[in-house]
Design a protein around this nucleic acid. Structure first.
Lengths: 207, 207
DNA sequence: AAAGTTCTTGACCGATCAGTCAAGCACGCA
DNA sequence: TGCGTGCTTGACTGATCGGTCAAGAACTTT
């Protein structure tokens, strides 16, 4: 099959993800990505038929990169409530990492891309939906386990509650991105999520 | 002072707000706005020194447009919990209106603009923060009234809870925008917010 | 070593981008 | 009536946009 594929494609995906995550899809040009990746534009279009295809590939890649972490956090070995608590810790950790790495709070790349482009590029909307559903499935499993162990009422609408948690997390991360500040995320993420789960916070700052 | 100002400036603001809200800041050009507004580009730059200035003016305008409604909803005449419930109803109503008007779910214009541009245009970030704080102040007042009437514990961190509610609402609206569907918003907005307030839903779908 | 495939390169395209400018026009005021 | 100011107009700029292409280089296979 001729020459084996070098990692040019992966470099383009990584570079694009970083640039778009930091700023936005519309403000990052194909030339910007190529320049930062040290790749000529002709090569770019050898691997990706369009800029949108690159963005979709970057979304998929970012999921596959965190999937092992999700599998660990939401392992059935862990008590379900502890899974959510661990997830919140990891969210803050990851945001702190990217803040140090990129010099600003970046929030969730899928959400930024989705919010900007969902109305203009159907494939980005579809990819967002797919990734969102995969993540919500982790929440649903944990919620079902909470119902099973009795820490959540048996008539709980698990899918609805997973969506609420997802929306809340997404909102907190989007606000952190816009304000470029992790302070409120660190302070308010936990009590709000416990509130959504109908659980009193031991620390007392939640209702 | 010569010729009195016609409403060209306001037409530009309205048009820009609609176009950017529907798609995004980056995908709407000054030419697009001018064409849709029936205004020549020279006139545009007579009123606004740059595209960003127009965006900031549009954000400010969108707030002033809904402010009377906020004042009504959060009037001290209304019981505080009822204020939040009314706000959720109005959010769904407004989203339904824009869906019919523009053919798609648009979410919150400030959030979309903020998420896309906060890292690139400081003035947009600052304006977002200003408007967000103004809105959160309505929530804080209502929460304080709930504490006063005893429906919320006296040690409630009112500012933190207002931020949680704001983040949750913003997340639900952003998701509705991306998915271009009001179904989940209509179904899940209310129980989640009641959960954040630590209140059982009479309808039973909340925890 | 020749043929075949994959990847790279750099020049190139028409369209569009945000923004400029000088001239003209319409109105309020004197 | 005529002057001054504010608004409009349309042509214009240089840069940049996403995307194309033909030719060649690098590597595998035969």
């Amino acid at each position: 099959m001729g020459r084996p594929s070098p990692d040019t494609k992966q470099i383009l995906i990584d570079t694009a993800l970083a640039l778009i995550w930091m700023s936005s899809y519309g403000s990052v040009s194909v030339d910007d990505i190529c320049k930062a990746a040290g790749v000529k534009k002709g090569s770019f279009y050898h691997f990706f038929p369009s800029k949108v295809d690159l963005a979709v590939a970057a979304m998929e890649h970012s999921y596959h990169e965190v999937k092992p972490l999700y599998d660990t956090i939401f392992s059935p070995d862990t008590p379900p409530l502890r899974r959510f608590e661990r997830m919140m810790e990891v969210v803050v950790e990851k945001q702190t990492e990217t803040l140090e790495k990129y010099g600003r709070v970046c929030g969730c790349s899928d959400t930024s891309l989705g919010c900007e482009m969902a109305g203009l590029e159907e494939r980005i909307r579809v990819k967002f939906e797919e990734l969102a559903n995969r993540k919500k499935r982790y929440y649903e499993n944990a919620l079902r386990d909470m119902v099973a162990e009795g820490s959540l009422p048996p008539d709980t609408d698990v899918k609805a509650k997973a969506h609420e948690i997802f929306a809340y997390l997404l909102g907190q991360m989007t606000l952190a991105r816009i304000q470029n500040d992790l302070g409120l995320l660190k302070r308010d993420l936990r009590p709000g999520l416990l509130g959504l789960l109908g659980i009193q916070d031991k620390a007392g700052s939640a209702s």
